[in-house]
Design a protein around this nucleic acid. Structure first.
Lengths: 113, 113
DNA sequence: CTATCATATTCCCATATCGGCATGCGTCAA
DNA sequence: TTGACGCATGCCGATATGGGAATATGATAG
């Protein structure tokens, strides 16, 4: 049971660095598959597969134009992610002085091994 | 080459629903492992494993108190995630009609190559 | 030292994932 | 129709993952 029910939601989709790159590129506008593949230095099948995942979670849309398939960004699915992460906003500015000292201790402990 | 370099970054860590639940719980304060496991309805080893991942990407810290190990939130690693997702903020309410114009430009650019 | 409690780790299984390669399919031009 | 082009899919291999069960490790009490 790998990665369980995780699959097929936006969180999972953006866990992949290459998929994040694809999304970032698509902010500039629609693009055909081969274009994306070339620009990101990945194979055409590779690009297609990542795009499939992104499509399944609704982060991109496809539109057929002649022989080409133009992929476009649909960022709406990122909003819940943004909100979830935003729920921690007030915590990442907290003082972690205690933590820092802990880290120091840890490093020392390591060197002593 | 499975899942490549994805592993061990915050994006991957929060791709797991149970890990998100753990993080959410930890906003209320530090907690021992068994507590978390029970509250989230998972086994103790299960909780320990997820906590290990969270620790490795720096989203939680541990502190030994007697026999217990108290896990606490360290949300700093979520900031980059929030920022990355935030980079799409202006897109998730946009109308998708505009996309067509870009396509035209692209076609022209191609023909000129 | 020993027993015990709280956690971490290991092993195993089933499955999911990514990448590469080959191939299938749809569209368009001739 | 036949090619050619653009893309999707299928299959394979290597690996990573989550869950369960059993066990190891660490700290503390007695």
């Amino acid at each position: 049971m790998a990665r369980a029910a995780t699959t097929s939601d936006a969180f999972n989709a953006i866990a992949e660095p290459q998929r994040r790159e694809i999304l970032a590129l698509l902010r500039a506008g629609e693009r055909p598959v081969t274009d994306l593949a070339q620009e990101l230095g990945m194979s055409q099948p590779g690009a297609s597969k990542h795009l499939r995942v992104l499509r399944e979670v609704g982060l991109v849309r496809v539109r057929g134009v002649g022989k080409q398939r133009l992929y476009g960004l649909d960022a709406r699915g990122l909003r819940p992610v943004h909100e979830w992460v935003g729920g921690f906003e007030r915590f990442w500015n907290e003082s972690f002085d205690r933590l820092d000292t802990y880290v120091q201790d840890l490093k020392q402990a390591r060197q002593e091994e």
